[in-house]
Design a binder for these strands. Structure first.
Lengths: 340, 340
DNA sequence: GATGAATTTGTTAGCGCTCACAATGGTGTC
DNA sequence: GACACCATTGTGAGCGCTAACAAATTCATC
């Protein structure tokens, strides 16, 4: 920096002012300094800057189940939005969600300090751990939760109480309601559900949306089979469903479990959609190429990431806590559903 | 740090020595300092440390196509290995691979400095850009390339010439050879290939493995259809293949394209595996639940990430450049392949 | 033309840490 | 007992930057 100052014939402080876009620098000086910066290929030292500003220009992303389509794409969305805003993204992916693992990861973000933290795909366990740990920087949970689902309100309630900036979510319950309503419209009256792990907030919200919508139509919920997001668990659930013959339609909490169910039905000799309608959740790109193509619920991951970073940065830079933000998912109808 | 020193009755320097596990600190002093650190909940300031050591304890991961199974899981493996070694991982995912995008991302890693860089899933474009940019820190390419494939040698040759630490790769050509040999063993003699985009190093290596193995068996290569990794492109290729009826087996360069092909065959009334055998590449967890379950090539992403970080850290910390490392993929046989 | 205000620049003091060196005390050797 | 030697601790400087203040210059206004 001293070198740049010398070359431009100014003091190092003026160089600093140019770098930080301070208002009171004359146009001529600014040009001279910028010229010198370019000539010397100067890059300011981030460590020195952080030392005095106490900002790292990095945000930490804490996530679980990052091998799954939803979380992985949320990460991508968050990452892109953050980098556009000049923040770098440091990630910590938990292979198993345990309080100590979460603690370690957050500790990591305090050591290699993050100006803010995004938590993807919270579990009950994750939320509990988060509540018990004092995180000294803004934190946003993203992608899930049932904010906006009114009385059911999972995510929103939790974080509102903490004075957290609130969370950004796709309205899972509404997505589930879309899916179920679509099946109701087709004349189905016994609609099963293959759920995600019940301690995942979004899994619970999807299940609740399914139950709620059926109740609203005056119907008893069909069989509820618990999966773990994996295709294998969907397969096993599908076999059970085929054996019991209690439902004419299934709503799976993600596309992978729907894929497993599809295969189970195929093995059991049930035709989809003639004998059994199937709806998934996520709309991963492959869903259109399942056999048959899957009707599913679409979530906007890019938008989710952008909103999430927007909210986080508002809190970091402005100090104004956002109030939460909810996106509405849409239904994509394909060949896996048909009238009863 | 001064506070800790005062509480422990030592100088700040002794605290620093404890923190850095210097040898010449008496056990009693060390215990007293550690106690003080714990009592005060002290965490050392990374920015100050980086300022003087010129190390950020962060490694940057530059990747493309991170929405696909392979790259996403490589990232996960790299991330886990890095965090275990006390490094944080900063990621930059390119949505489109352009020289300027690559330059921006690398520039980002120089600004928020990384001690080393991992490049996932290199393209031709990526390699070219990397060669033209002077990166002042160790760089490892990972997961792809055809290092070890002898005369064909893509990745290894490129990076050896640069004096780079070399790259870590799954031997793509060997994986492809496994797949094709399996089909040959089943008696197939006209074996088609659905390739990835030819400017992706690993796609080229898989295609080459396919061509090479067929040539070794004295057979002419079957039809070559070019895809783009997506299920959609596999579907279109599958339709063409079904129409032309020139092959009895297909080797797809990833599982998603295999999925698309499966759907195309199903629509065209071709039974798999009776009329057509299909082999994929990646062994993503869903592959076992395709209809029918997919025979595919398994890659060890965890291992890949660990080796890659191992090599990078050896270069960062020891200054000794690794020589490259090649993993062998395995074949997982499922129901999508059958004797001719 | 003198006064006050605004604009533009420079000077100084740390931010919290590690490095190089110095100082102290103990131990072994002849 | 004198000397060298090592283990252990402390002291001072400085990494590259920004914040706060101070100084110099310009400008408008009466």
């Amino acid at each position: 920096m001293e070198d740049v100052a010398r070359l431009a014939g100014v003091s190092h402080q003026t160089v600093s002012r140019v770098l930080n876009a301070h208002p009171h620098v004359s146009a001529a000086t600014r040009a001279r300094v910028e010229r010198a910066i370019a000539d010397l290929g100067y890059r300011r030292n981030t460590a020195a800057r952080s030392l005095v500003t106490r900002r790292s220009q990095a945000i930490g992303v804490l996530g679980a189940g990052m091998g799954f389509y939803g979380p992985a794409n949320t990460l991508l969305g968050v990452q892109q939005a953050a980098r556009e805003q000049g923040y770098s993204v440091s990630m910590a992916s938990l292979s198993r969600v345990t309080p100590s693992g979460i603690r370690d990861a957050l500790e990591h973000f305090m050591l290699q300090p993050a100006d803010g933290i995004v938590v993807i795909a919270p579990h009950e366990t994750m939320l509990a751990a988060l509540r018990s740990i004092d995180v000294p920087v803004p934190l946003v949970t993203v992608g899930f939760g049932a904010a906006g689902s009114g009385a059911d309100g999972f995510g929103a309630a939790v974080f509102g109480a903490d004075g957290r900036p609130g969370d950004v979510a796709v309205d899972q319950a509404a997505g589930a309601a879309h899916a179920v309503r679509h099946l109701l419209d087709l004349g189905h009256t016994s609609i099963a559900h293959i759920s995600g792990p019940p301690d995942w907030i979004d899994a619970a919200a999807r299940t609740e949306g399914w139950r709620h919508t059926l109740a609203g139509a005056g119907l008893a919920p069909g069989p509820l089979l618990q999966g773990d997001w994996s295709a294998g668990s969907g397969y096993r659930a599908g076999l059970e469903l085929a054996a019991s013959a209690q439902a004419t339609a299934v709503f799976a909490a993600n596309d992978q479990m729907a894929l497993g169910a599809l295969r189970a039905f195929s093995e059991a000799g049930l035709r989809v959609p003639e004998d059994m309608s199937v709806v998934g959740f996520d709309d991963q790109p492959e869903a259109a190429y399942f056999v048959p193509p899957l009707t599913t619920v679409n979530q906007g991951f890019k938008e989710l990431g952008a909103r999430c970073i927007g909210m986080l940065l508002a809190d970091i830079e402005g100090g104004a806590a956002g109030t939460g933000s909810v996106l509405s998912p849409g239904l994509v109808v394909r060949a896996s559903t048909a009238p009863r």
